[in-house]
Write a protein that binds this DNA or RNA. Structure first.
Length: 794
DNA sequence: GGGCCTCAAGTTTTT
DNA sequence: CTTGAGGCCC
């Protein structure tokens, strides 16, 4: 018997309503996931439903993972038969089994955003369109919106007649779909649409899945788009045992085509549907909930509801306005250290922000303060150039059907095959309706191609041929051979740059991931296509709750569905959050979506919530003065513990040298050192690229922190003064101080307090100090300032 | 014909 | 601050 004793009446009712359509309107923190888990347990334990008949669809991999874990914990091994999956992963899995019906092979690959852009760029060029007017990003956005509404290129063309731009886009749309089919690839939207085509076009397939999934649950239903709605409608069409869970106040994906009508109109689509409201919040304190309610009240067009809690009071919601984003980052970390000193578990702390770009300055502070953190989302490991090169090689060795992949690697590493040659091959292949790789194998027959060029191209196809002949020792084995035999690794090793060292490490990591994957599938034939699918669809498998004691850093969007004892909601600034684009998007009620996003962020907090904003922030390499977020003004002042010191309020009498946003407030903050480039406000990381840097951040907590703050940093309290000291003066790498040549040289063994022993690879001279690159035995290659790192020769 | 360098333009959120 | 496109030199 499933134990329902800990559920409230509404939750119990939801658990026991197993037959027919059911809509659970579950407010934030109302025990939604627990209810769904209990419902699954009840179906299996008490209703005799086979686990194989249950399908649970979530929106993100994190949510799917969490549900899987909790179901496993409650039901045990029996749970293995349940499909718990995201929409996209589910579709990929179904499509793989029936891909031939749609003209794909079962080894079709999935295009990510970069692949889409590459293809679209090429099509725009092919059509000789003005690249200023038709940017791949914009074109793809229009196409994606159409696809999310189940429109084909033809549909889109018909409704675009008379509109030059849209007619051109319709044509690109058609070419794009054709190219994908030819390349045996699908994009994210295609996964949904082709799955629908499969189910609606092949009754026996539909029947199979309808019989298979007699009980269907969909989480975060407010975020489903039209295609997802249709997919669910098909699958549930026979037995109608469909349970959807959602909260219109947490709808934050309209920009991706989510249609709020799916949840608001559920009862219309499924007459006789039962509706259960879960309105008791078990997560947050009364004070946090009051703030959330006060904010969301400003939205119109929502289902009226009243979230309540028995846990009145609690700590007040804090608000701090800092001078700069750097200070905000530093003080946030300091606040976290205080919580840690009070016994808080770092796993129970999250720092949230509106845009991924904001994570960087936070990371710097976490590193400097040596507080372990974990970056969720952001720049994906699998999007790094070297990883994508490897994937392109794997695809080419396997089938070479993907022209984009072949073109990507034809000159990587450099083989002196240039753009002109590639264009000529492309044109020739197009005339003959051949694949790009096939055309390459016949390069000597392509007119206009010199014999030298043809020879190089044939050399490339020969190389791929050699790789194909090699013994089958798995994906990892193939990867290693690719690196060796193509000269890829040799090229990276030759340069001796830190970036290329990082790339080598990334490739090693990729190979070990492949090895893990093969091991996991226990000797079974492992398909490259499935491995690549996992990469593109289940990329952020990194479990949050891994007990590693790290603070989670993520966007507000990523935070949905999660909860933490302590939540820091940063960057509450006008133009940033709500973003200025959304504020201007009146047509789609963009501001209301931002407000829901803020509501989501607030309601992640269980015990304490910290809001903050900065007066100054670097945006796209430019220091901008930032106003307060309007959301702060929507929260009654008596609910906030506004800790912004009096003396920190804007002072008058200084001209800021040209008002940036033309707004009122007038004051200057004495920040000359910060404004503008080249004023010493760099991050002190030398020539590292963003990717290389971020990668190192992720791997090493406490890495090569460097000084680099502006010189004029007005202190306004003791803590800031300490901050200045620790950053500007304390480390030993002071601006203007004389630098001393380290007593070690290249090749020497050195010891670092945190990283242990390593070998010095490179020493370069910086304006203020020496930059030392060390290969540590246990931590890999790090770059650090000599004065800061205090390396000891051994 | 290829490769390197400079210049310009763009930047929300995710599967 | 990053990526892409175009120009120029080898």
């Amino acid at each position: 018997m499933a134990d329902l004793s800990r559920l409230n009446e509404k939750q119990k009712e939801a658990v026991l309503s197993t037959e027919g359509p059911l809509l659970i309107l579950a407010g934030a923190g109302s025990g939604k996931t627990g209810t769904v888990i209990h419902r699954i347990a009840h179906l299996i334990d008490d209703c005799g439903v086979s686990p194989f008949s249950i399908l649970a669809i979530t929106f993100t991999n994190k949510a799917a993972g969490e549900m899987r874990d909790r179901v496993d914990a409650m039901i045990g091994t029996n749970a293995a038969g349940i499909w718990v999956s995201t929409f996209h992963a589910m579709c990929a899995r179904i499509l793989r089994r029936h891909a031939e019906y749609l003209g794909f092979t079962r080894n079709f690959t999935i295009y990510d955003t970069d692949d889409q852009k590459t293809l679209m760029r090429q099509l725009i060029r092919e059509k000789n369109l003005d690249t200023k007017m038709f940017r791949e990003r914009g074109v793809l956005a229009v196409i994606s919106a159409a696809k999310n509404n189940r429109k084909t290129a033809d549909d889109f063309y018909k409704e675009s007649v008379g509109d030059y731009r849209n007619m051109q886009i319709a044509e690109l749309f058609r070419m794009y779909q054709e190219a994908l089919l030819k390349n045996d690839a699908m994009d994210f939207d295609d996964l949904l649409n082709y799955a629908i085509d499969l189910l609606s076009g092949f009754p026996e397939v539909l029947n199979y899945y309808q019989e298979r999934f007699r009980y269907i649950m969909v989480d975060e239903y407010q975020d489903t788009n039209t295609a997802q709605f249709e997919l669910v409608r098909l699958l549930a069409g026979k037995y109608r045992n469909l349970c959807v869970v959602g909260d219109d106040d947490q709808s934050i994906y309209a920009f991706r085509g989510a249609n709020i009508e799916n949840i608001l109109g559920f009862e219309k689509e499924y007459p006789g549907a039962k509706v259960i409201r879960l309105e008791q919040n078990y997560r947050s304190t009364g004070n946090i909930l009051d703030v959330a309610n006060a904010l969301i009240k400003n939205n119109h067009g929502r289902k009226p509801k009243s979230l309540w809690t028995e846990r009145q009071g609690g700590a007040k919601v804090h608000y701090d306005r800092y001078q700069s984003a750097k200070e905000e980052a530093f003080r946030t970390v300091r606040e976290i250290e205080k919580l840690r000193d009070r016994g808080a578990d770092l796993n129970e702390i999250a720092v949230l922000y509106r845009t991924n770009a904001q994570s960087r300055v936070l990371e710097e502070s976490f590193i400097r303060e040596n507080v372990p953190y974990h970056l969720i989302g952001g720049v994906n490991f699998y999007q790094r150039a070297e990883i994508k090169d490897m994937i392109a090689y794997l695809k080419t060795v396997e089938s070479a059907r993907d022209d984009i992949a072949v073109r990507r690697i034809i000159n990587v590493p450099k083989r002196a095959i240039g753009k002109t040659t590639v264009d000529r091959i492309t044109a020739w292949a197009g005339e003959r309706d051949l694949g790009f790789f096939e055309a390459c194998t016949q390069a000597d027959r392509i007119p206009g191609l010199g014999s030298a060029a043809a020879k190089k191209v044939i050399g490339f196809t020969g190389l791929i041929g050699e790789l194909r002949k090699a013994p089958d020792d798995g994906i990892a084995g193939l990867m290693r051979r690719i690196l060796d035999e193509t000269g890829y690794i040799a090229e990276l090793k030759a340069t001796q740059t830190i970036e290329d060292q990082t790339r080598i490490e990334n490739l090693e990591e990729f190979i070990s991931k492949a090895a893990d994957y093969e091991e996991k599938s226990g000797g079974e034939e492992t398909s490259l296509a499935e491995f690549l699918e996992e990469i593109s669809l289940v990329a952020d498998i990194d479990s949050l709750d891994d007990g590693s004691g790290r603070v989670a850093l993520m966007t507000l969007h990523s935070s949905k569905g999660l909860e933490f004892d302590y939540v820091f909601l940063t960057g509450l600034e006008a133009g940033l959050f709500p973003s200025f684009r959304s504020v201007n998007d009146i047509e789609n009620n963009g501001l209301e979506e931002e407000r829901r996003l803020c509501y989501v962020g607030i309601t992640r907090a269980k015990k304490e919530l910290f809001l903050s904003s900065a007066r100054e922030r670097m945006v796209n390499g430019e220091t901008m003065r930032q106003g307060r977020s309007q959301f702060l003004d929507e929260i009654p002042a008596d609910l906030l513990d506004d800790r912004t010191p009096e003396e920190d309020m804007p002072r008058r009498g200084f001209a800021f040298g040209g008002s940036i946003d033309g707004d009122d407030s007038g004051g200057d903050f004495g920040y000359r050192g910060f404004s503008g480039r080249g004023a010493g406000a760099g991050t002190g990381y030398g020539s590292d690229s963003y990717h290389g840097m971020s990668e190192r951040y992720r791997k090493a907590h406490g890495g090569a922190g460097g000084p680099g703050f502006g010189k004029q940093f007005p202190s306004y309290d003791e803590e800031t003064a300490r901050f200045r000291k620790s950053v500007l003066g304390g480390g030993g790498a002071k601006s203007g101080a004389k630098k001393t040549l380290p007593d070690y040289g290249v090749g020497d063994l050195v010891r670092h307090a945190k990283f242990g022993d390593g070998k010095v690879l490179v020493i370069t001279e910086d304006k203020r100090d020496y930059m030392v690159t060390v290969d540590f035995e246990d931590f890999g290659i790090k770059k650090m300032l000599a004065g800061f790192a205090k390396l000891e020769k051994i």
